[in-house]
């Protein structure tokens, strides 16, 4: 090191020092900026991207924050994130379902407006949009789960009977009513948020969440035996010994059925 400094002209020395100093400064500033960029990746769960938005990482490399999608949305659904708001990356478009949901326009004007492809132009059928997935997050407050016929989220769904159905089951509380559980089918749900917007509760019991929060995933090697059997048209393993079924009745542990033993005593107040 010191050997080279001998022969170095003052200008060259000065130049190298300046360059090193500049590079050092830029490395520091660059790291700070990179930190900010990483931070900006955290998209809050209630902020939904417009239809066709690339997945979040790709989206942040693609969206120039021009707001053309915002302007062309006829329902005023979208807005650009403000600086300082604890929300999506500054200036990027998003919507909050409970405020204004996406009305799933047939001609998808937001996607048509996007000049960069941050909203994928390949999305030509709004039913294929994946803005998120609705989840009935609160079965304890959902009116349908309490046994009432609210049905609002089901009725308003633009993809009714595919994205959301009412699954009837026995109401164990009353004992002789049905319970119609609003049930979302993720394959068809676009995440438009109309259900969340319309839920009559003060705080919606059904919410659209980003897929990363809404969905689990099945392991690659899992197989559903019944599907495999149907596909094969025969049992998967031949020659399984069929053990006798244990029917309820005398001699079994199922004592309350006809022919079983009555309990020796009953708790006072117990039904029947």
């Amino acid at each position: 090191m010191s050997v080279t400094t001998h022969s170095m002209s003052p200008q060259r020395r000065r130049f190298l020092i300046d360059t090193a100093r500049m590079a050092g400064g830029c490395a520091v500033a660059g790291s700070a900026l990179a930190y900010l960029a990483r931070d900006a990746r955290a998209l809050p769960a209630e902020a939904l991207r417009p239809p066709g938005a690339l997945d979040e990482e790709a989206f942040l490399s693609a969206c120039i924050r021009c707001g053309l999608c915002v302007r062309d949305c006829p329902y005023g659904t979208l807005s650009l994130a403000d600086l300082g708001e604890d929300g999506p990356a500054t200036g990027t478009p998003y919507f909050t379902a409970r405020d204004v949901p996406c009305e799933m326009c047939d001609d998808i004007p937001c996607v048509a407006a996007c000049p960069t492809g941050a909203l994928d132009p390949a999305l030509d059928d709004i039913d294929d949009a994946k803005m998120g997935t609705a989840v009935l997050v609160d079965q304890e407050n959902c009116l349908n789960f309490l046994g009432l016929r609210c049905d609002v989220c089901y009725r308003v769904c633009p993809v009714i009977d595919k994205a959301i159905t009412l699954e009837a089951s026995h109401n164990p509380r009353s004992g002789h009513h049905a319970l119609f559980a609003p049930t979302v089918h993720a394959d068809h749900c676009t995440g438009c948020g109309v259900c969340e917007k319309s839920c009559v509760l003060p705080e919606a019991a059904i919410k659209v969440l980003p897929a990363r929060l809404a969905r689990g995933s099945s392991a690659d090697h899992y197989r559903k035996g019944w599907e495999e059997k149907d596909a094969k048209g025969a049992p998967l393993v031949e020659g399984i010994i069929d053990l006798p079924d244990r029917l309820p009745g005398p001699g079994t542990d199922n004592l309350a059925t006809p022919g079983g033993f009555e309990p020796a005593f009953k708790l006072p107040g117990a039904s029947q």
């Binding site: 900026l33 960029a37 500054t90």
Partner: peptide, 20 residues
């Protein structure tokens, strides 16, 4: 230099860095 840094950070983080 800052311009160069901005482009480098954009490339490394995969974001439009200066827009932050």
């Amino acid at each position: 230099w800052i311009l160069g840094t901005v482009l480098a950070v954009s490339a490394l983080t995969g974001t439009i860095a200066w827009e932050l």
